[in-house]
């Protein structure tokens, strides 16, 4: 997806220079929310101020919005059909496999810092054990990051 954004913004429309794009991207990735939406906010702001931000966000979210409206309106009518249920029963293990793959990949990149892995395990277990709202994981993780590196 990112090469696609870059081609539109840097190469075709020349709204941002390559450097500005890379800077914007790193900000977009570190802020909460969808990266595509954050990038759109940043690019729009750079080009046309607040109005640019709003127009870009609209452009970046509208396709997904319309596709899901379309899909949902059919899906919610037909989801009870046995064939549909069987398809999703088969797809779920694949989704779990994809997510475990992502955990392994990110976990590997964290291998250089055992503290990270230990904190990840602790956060995982206390959340499940105490049924915490996941936003606490974010807050605790971030605060531990600040305290550990003081």
């Amino acid at each position: 997806m990112l090469p696609l954004i870059k081609r539109e913004i840097v190469e075709k429309k020349k709204v941002l220079t390559e450097e500005e794009f890379i800077e914007g991207l790193s900000v977009a990735q570190s802020l909460p929310g969808a990266i595509a939406i954050n990038t759109a906010c940043f690019v729009g702001r750079k080009a046309r101020g607040i109005a640019g931000t709003l127009v870009s966000v609209l452009g970046a979210s509208l396709p997904s919005f319309l596709i899901i409206l379309f899909v949902a309106s059919f899906f919610l009518q037909y989801r009870h059909l046995e064939a549909v249920q069987n398809f999703f029963r088969g797809a779920t293990p694949a989704i779990v496999a994809l997510i475990i793959g992502a955990v392994v990949d990110i976990g590997k990149s964290a291998l250089d810092d055992w503290g990270d892995l230990i904190i990840a395990f602790i956060l995982f277990f206390i959340t499940l054990f105490f049924n915490l709202h996941p936003l606490w994981i974010v807050l605790i993780g971030g605060m531990l990051g600040v305290l550990r590196r003081k």
């Binding site: 570190s30 779920t92 989704i95 779990v96 997510i99 475990i100 992502a102 955990v103 990110i106 976990g107 964290a110 810092d113 503290g115 990270d116 892995l117 904190i119 990840a120 395990f121 956060l123 995982f124 959340t127 499940l128 996941p134 994981i137 974010v138 605790i140 993780g141 971030g142 605060m143 531990l144 990051g145 600040v146 550990r148 590196r149 003081k150």
Partner: peptide, 23 residues
């Protein structure tokens, strides 16, 4: 920056919880 860096283990934990819960 330290706050953001501290989110790495949090993100690993979150994705792990997603996998566990969906499984």
């Amino acid at each position: 920056q330290h706050f953001l860096r501290g989110l790495r283990p949090a993100v690993i934990a979150l994705i792990g919880i997603a996998a566990y819960s969906l499984a």
